[in-house]
């Protein structure tokens, strides 16, 4: 069935409106007791610790590859000593948060979408509503909070491992000691790099959790709906991440002169 352009546009705005309403409901519920603390910890463990290996490996390879790829160009300009500054700033400011968030979008948003989607399909959510438990509070709030809190931690660990990978390349190929490398990295970094990046990753985490939960919570009926929910959760979350990143860079530009 093919929709007209007007309908598509209408559906897009409806979805944005629904998502905004969903986010508003989250903020309303998150401050209201009772708090599902145990469930929050469980979700934090599943989203944080379980993603750690993936994030570490990706971060390490990104640092390694970025350094290896930039080396020839920097050598051509005689600026290979600026490698720590360049890699440090690019990883901490942009690459670390965005790549970690994208990986988490792939792993966590799809997971949440599929989990909540299948719960919706098997009418578990409806059963919870009937039995008097607040499914939104138990399922959605804990998950969004968990991603929001865990993503900055994953980002900082990913950054550290990426910088280690970069330092390893410089150490092996360029005879730069680890101490000198990290001295230079922290020489180049400022609070204007670290604070916006960390703040940004909170929003990234929130976006991932929000989109995953939204897509799963409003899953269409039928087993096909679960697949669609998981798939659209990843696609929508990734797209929204870049949008959030765009906004975040503009906002941080106001506070910290680039």
């Amino acid at each position: 069935m093919s929709l007209s352009l007007v309908d598509k546009t209408k559906n897009f705005f409806i979805e944005i409106g629904d998502l905004s309403y969903f986010a508003g409901r989250f903020f309303k519920e998150v401050l209201k007791p009772p708090f599902e603390f145990k469930e929050l910890l469980r979700q934090c463990y599943h989203m944080g610790n379980r993603s750690l290996v993936l994030v570490s490996v990706t971060g390490f390879i990104i640092g390694l590859v970025l350094t290896l790829q930039s080396r020839p160009t920097l050598i051509e300009f005689g600026a290979v000593s600026w490698m720590p500054n360049m890699v440090g700033i690019s990883i901490v400011r942009e690459l670390g948060p965005v790549i970690t968030a994208l990986i988490c979008a792939g792993r966590i948003a799809s997971g949440i979408g599929a989990e909540l989607g299948s719960m919706r399909v098997t009418e578990q959510i409806d059963a919870m509503e009937v039995s008097g438990t607040n499914p939104f509070k138990y399922l959605v709030v804990t998950r969004i909070l968990a991603t929001t809190l865990m993503l900055p931690l994953l980002v900082i660990i990913g950054d550290a491992i990426a910088l280690y990978g970069s330092a390893l390349v410089e150490n092996l190929k360029g005879d730069v000691s680890f101490q000198l490398y990290f001295n230079k990295v922290f020489d180049a970094l400022e609070y204007g790099d670290l604070i916006p990046a960390t703040t940004k990753s909170f929003f990234f985490g929130f976006t991932i959790g929000l989109v995953g939960c939204y897509k799963g919570y409003y899953c269409k009926k039928g087993t096909a709906g679960v697949g669609v929910a998981a798939n659209t959760a990843v696609v929508f979350a990734s797209m929204l991440l870049f949008f959030v990143d765009f906004v975040a860079v503009f906002v941080s530009d106001i506070f910290y002169e680039l």
Binding site: L41, G48, N49, L153, I156, I157, D159
Partner: peptide
């Protein structure tokens, strides 16, 4: 989870 959170915060 605690170990993970502490490592991240320390960093």
């Amino acid at each position: 989870l605690g170990v993970f959170v502490i490592i991240g915060t320390t960093l």
